[in-house]
């Protein structure tokens, strides 16, 4: 199979993720969409590694995973705390950081 197809898939996944981040209000869903975008990037990295025949892309994919894992830890913790104090998981309720 032509590896370029994987790139199309990655673009599709990224778009879905991006749309989800912008449209959905539930923090958990937004969070999942972010993960989706990250994974789309990973897919693209790996594909490029394959296309170019070196390992740079794969290494970057590992970095992304590490960062994503860290993000999950911090992000989920924030969401849980937020839910506890507001009894809501809607991101629109977290709009106090405006002037």
């Amino acid at each position: 199979m032509n590896p370029v197809n994987y790139l199309y898939l990655a673009a599709l996944l990224f778009t879905i993720g991006g749309a989800g981040v912008m449209i959905r209000r539930n923090a958990i869903i937004v969070f999942m969409c972010v993960e989706l975008m990250l994974n789309a990037c990973n897919l693209a990295f790996v594909t490029f590694a394959r296309l170019h025949g070196n390992l740079d892309g794969q290494i970057f994919a590992f970095f992304t995973m590490v960062v994503a894992a860290a993000e999950v830890v911090v992000g989920l913790a924030i969401i849980v705390t937020f839910f506890r104090s507001r009894h809501s998981a809607s991101v629109d309720d977290a709009s106090l950081m405006k002037l």
Binding site: G18, V91, D92, K98
Partner: peptide, 17 residues
């Protein structure tokens, strides 16, 4: 300019994108 900072994560995401 301040009005642009409405506090909604979604709108920040749009402007980032």
């Amino acid at each position: 300019m301040r009005r642009l900072q409405n506090g909604y994560v979604r709108s920040y995401a749009v402007s980032m994108l």
